Simulated assay, not measured.
Amino acid sequence: MRYKDHSVIVTGAARGIGAAIARSYAAEGARVILADLLVEQGERTADDIRSGGGQARFIACDVSREEQVVALIARTVEHYGAVDILINNAGIADPHQASFYDLTGDQWDRVMNTNAKGCFLTSREAAKIMRLNEQGGAIVHISSTRALMSEPHTEAYAASKGAIASLTHAMAVSLGPDGITVNCIYPGWIETGDYRELREIDHAQHPAGRVGKPEDIARACLYLTDSVNRFITGAGLVVDGGMTVKMIYEP
């Protein structure tokens, strides 16, 4: 229960990686706020956590909307009295099958506003509360290995995730004097669907021998926000089973 009495916000927590992160912190004793646009799924995930004995509340929030982010942080403080940890997981991908030549400015803005601007807004508001804590706080951005390498027609997504990586080291320098660590995780292939449907070749192309699971990212978050690891800040942790160092994806 290393996170007992810690207040943790996880954005994009209704399902997938975000839900796994929220569950992991709750299992370690944290009081978790799940923020997402998917109300029904978010409420269900929070209910599941509570039914297992954890502390969790769901708050609907569009992280690209400044007024909703301000309200998210205010409600978190109202419920739990503080903000100790923020996991910026909310994000969207490029429009389905939108090529570079067809990608519109509005589509670009939607991806950038959710992924990059959302990280900035939630971090800014959470840090205002964290700096009042005796022990400061910890922020983790979920970027992607797409910030480091790309497949065709993923320009908006790659740019947004690259922005998150740069935001990480900038914030680490700015917020360090306030006792706030800021780090970034670059997930690779993390399967959020039916893991049993993966092919042997899907696993074999990873040097680690398997495709990633949401819990792999959750464990990385727990590591980076642990108070014993406060010497780690401004860092980017690649969690991809070795795929990036292999350099190519096999068909």
Rank of each mutant, 00 (worst) to 15 (best):
I201T: 15
D5E: 14
T168N: 04
Q107E: 14
D47I: 02
N88A: 13
R210L: 08
S160T: 07
D94T: 11
A158E: 15
H141E: 00
L224K: 06
V69I: 08
R31F: 00
D202N: 07
V32K: 06
E134N: 11
E134D: 13
K117I: 03
Y157D: 08
Y195R: 07
R50L: 09
G12M: 02
Y25V: 10
S7T: 14
V173I: 14
C221S: 06
E125V: 12
A235M: 05
G42M: 05
L148T: 01
S174N: 15
L86A: 09
A126I: 02
N229F: 02
V8D: 02
N115S: 05
G236E: 13
P95C: 06
C221I: 11
I73P: 01
R23H: 11
R196H: 10
R124A: 10
S64M: 09
M1S: 15
A13K: 09
T244D: 00
M149A: 12
S227R: 14
M112D: 02
I129A: 12
N88D: 08
R124G: 01
H206T: 07
G193L: 07
S150Y: 04
E134R: 15
G209P: 09
E67I: 02
Q68T: 10
S51I: 05
A218S: 12
I85T: 10
R65N: 11
R124Y: 06
H203D: 14
D62H: 12
T233M: 07
I87Y: 05
Q205Y: 09
P152S: 05
A218L: 03
N113F: 03
I73K: 04
G52M: 11
C61R: 10
K246D: 06
S160D: 04
L38T: 11
A163S: 14
A19P: 02
R75N: 13
R2N: 12
Y3F: 15
Q107N: 07
Y157N: 01
